[in-house]
């Protein structure tokens, strides 16, 4: 697609889009971001430490030791004029206030779940169902290559709406991740008017 060139903004024709990867602690968010990102996962510890200050001062040293990488993001150049950013949401409750900021302007979201600890992803499902306008899908990360619970059971346990796509993914695999992201954006297309 050609963009009309603008005389007063000659340097800037590159567009960015964003997809959010949410889910509980250790479900594979960083792994999924890294599987397609062209930049190494960015360590945002310094950034998060400061950004989190107003929310929850990190004076408590025990809390601090559990903060390794609170959030990460990756980038995929899809075309010379199109960049896709993937943002993993921080799983720890004290960083939840950051979700609004991360999700604002997102084209879609993937809630990643681990069937061995489904409940750790409940807050993420709740968030996208109730507190966000960003359409989301749910993806079961297949840690050992096979599904331990049927998708129907997972859907029931999460009380997922029939219209919310539920898929499986191997978060380590670039192809599988890309396919999941396509599913997320296709869902956004279906859930939003043509002229959004």
């Amino acid at each position: 697609m050609a963009f009309p060139s603008s005389a007063d903004r000659p340097a800037l024709t590159v567009t960015s889009a964003k997809i959010v990867i949410a889910g509980g602690f250790g479900v594979g968010k960083s792994t999924m971001v890294a599987s397609v990102s062209e930049i190494p996962p960015v360590n945002t510890e310094a950034w998060m430490t400061q950004a989190g200050e107003s929310v929850d001062p990190l004076s408590d040293s025990s809390a601090k030791t559990t903060t390794t990488v609170a959030m990460d993001f990756g980038r995929v150049t899809l075309a010379p004029d199109l960049l896709l950013y993937l943002f993993g949401t921080p799983g720890q409750p004290r960083f939840w206030p950051m979700w609004d900021d991360l999700c604002r302007g997102a084209s879609g979201a993937v809630v990643l779940v681990d069937t061995r600890q489904l409940e750790s992803s409940f807050p993420a499902v709740n968030y996208f169902e109730n507190d966000s306008d960003v359409p989301f899908i749910v993806a079961v990360n297949l840690f050992d290559g096979k599904l331990t619970h049927s998708l129907e059971k997972v859907r029931d346990a999460l009380c997922l709406d029939e219209r919310t796509p539920l898929v499986t993914v191997d978060a380590r695999d670039r192809r599988s991740t890309a396919k999941t992201l396509v599913t997320a954006l296709s869902h956004t297309m279906k859930s939003t008017p043509t002229r959004a």
Partner: peptide, 26 residues
């Protein structure tokens, strides 16, 4: 600061471009 070529993150032209780009990644 980029104003963005599309008014909305849900603009179907943008979504289509990203989907096409991702499909080529696989």
């Amino acid at each position: 600061i980029a104003e963005g070529a599309y008014d909305s993150p849900f603009d179907h032209r943008l979504l289509k471009r990203v989907i096409d780009g991702l499909s080529e990644l696989g």
